[in-house]
Simulated scan of single mutants.
Amino acid sequence: MKILFLDIDGVLNSNFWNDANEREISEGKFIDTEKVLMLSKLINETDAKIVLHSGWRFWFDDNMNPLRYESIYFTEILKAHNLFIYDKTPDLTTEEIRKTKKFSLVKAREILLWLNKNDNIEEYLIVDDLDLNNQEIEVHQIKTDATVGLTNENVVEAIKLLNAKTH
């Protein structure tokens, strides 16, 4: 099984998109549908399962049912492109990390913990705009630029990395 650890902010939206879409954001629609099309191409060409490792994962219950309008909208947009969230990473944040929003300090450990608890992972990739401060997983990360989010170049690279063993 191939896994795509997906961050949302800075990946499926961007500073540039946010500035141009204030009305959508005021309606709780934080997702750039152009980025979802790119994600769809990535998933269709790799058959990877999406594991949410964004702060957005707190907007879902343990069965990945959305708990807030933003996550309901996100789920519906994914579904429209035949995409589904397989799972989410565990939460290792502390009150201090949540207060200072320094999630990059624990994201790598959360991903490694998820990988250790799940068998049959042949390849994994992380798409995130943050530096995850961990050399072990750094080679498995495509770091997006938060100002533009996911790009076609990121998608081509991701497909190549996820399909490396099967081609």
Results as ranks from 00 to 15, higher is better:
Leu113Asp: 12
Phe30Ile: 08
Asp61Arg: 07
Glu122Ala: 12
Ile72Val: 13
Glu123Pro: 06
Phe30Arg: 06
Ser104Glu: 15
Ile121Leu: 07
Gly28Pro: 10
Asn133Arg: 10
Leu37Tyr: 12
Lys102Ala: 14
Ile43His: 03
Arg23Glu: 15
Phe30Ser: 05
Asn118Lys: 10
Thr75Cys: 07
Leu113Trp: 05
Ile31Lys: 02
His53Thr: 09
Thr100Ser: 15
Gln141Phe: 06
Thr89Ala: 08
Pro90Gln: 09
Arg68Lys: 15
Leu42Pro: 01
Asn134Cys: 15
Val51Arg: 01
Glu136Thr: 14
Lys49Trp: 01
Leu42Ser: 03
Asp129Ile: 06
Glu27Asp: 13
Val139Cys: 09
Asp61Val: 05
Asn63Leu: 10
Ile50Thr: 00
Ile50Glu: 02
Met64Ile: 11
Glu123Cys: 12
Ser54Leu: 00
Asp47Leu: 13
Leu125Lys: 03
Lys88Phe: 01
Tyr73Ala: 14
Tyr73Gly: 01
Leu39Glu: 00
Ile97Trp: 04
Asn133Lys: 12
Met64Tyr: 07
Asp62Phe: 00
Trp59Ala: 15
Arg68Ala: 13
Leu42Cys: 09
Lys41Gly: 05
Asn134Leu: 09
Val106Asn: 01
Ala80Asp: 14
Leu112Val: 09
Asn82His: 11
Thr33His: 10
Ser54Lys: 02
Ile142Asp: 05
Leu52Cys: 07
Thr33Gln: 12
Ile77Tyr: 00
Glu27Ile: 07
Glu34Met: 10
Ser40Thr: 10
Arg23Gln: 13
Leu113Phe: 08
Pro90Trp: 02
Asp131Val: 14
Lys88Ile: 02
Ile97Met: 08
Met38Asn: 09
Thr94Asp: 11
Ser104Leu: 03
Glu123Tyr: 03
Ile111Ala: 07
Lys102Thr: 15
Ile50Ser: 02
Leu78His: 01
Thr94Cys: 11
Asp47Pro: 00
Ile121Thr: 14
Lys99Tyr: 14
Glu70Ser: 15
Ile97Gln: 05
Asp32Leu: 07
Thr89Met: 05
Ile77Cys: 03
Lys99Trp: 11
Gly28Ala: 07
Leu67Pro: 04
Phe103Ala: 09
Asp87Pro: 06
Pro66Thr: 04
Lys117Pro: 05
Thr100Cys: 12
Thr93His: 06
Phe60Cys: 03
Trp59Val: 07
Val51Tyr: 00
Lys29Gln: 13
Lys41Gln: 14
Lys79Ala: 12
Ile31Ala: 02
Glu76Asp: 15
Gly55Tyr: 08
Asp129Asn: 14
Thr100Glu: 14
Val127Lys: 01
Gly28Lys: 08
Val36Lys: 05
Asp32Arg: 09
Asp61Ile: 06
Asn134Gln: 08
Ile137Met: 04
Glu136Tyr: 09
Glu27Thr: 03
Met38Cys: 07
Leu125Asn: 08
Asn63Ser: 14
Ile137Ser: 02
Thr89His: 08
Leu42Arg: 03
Val106Thr: 15
Ile25Asn: 06
Glu76Ala: 11
Thr94Arg: 11
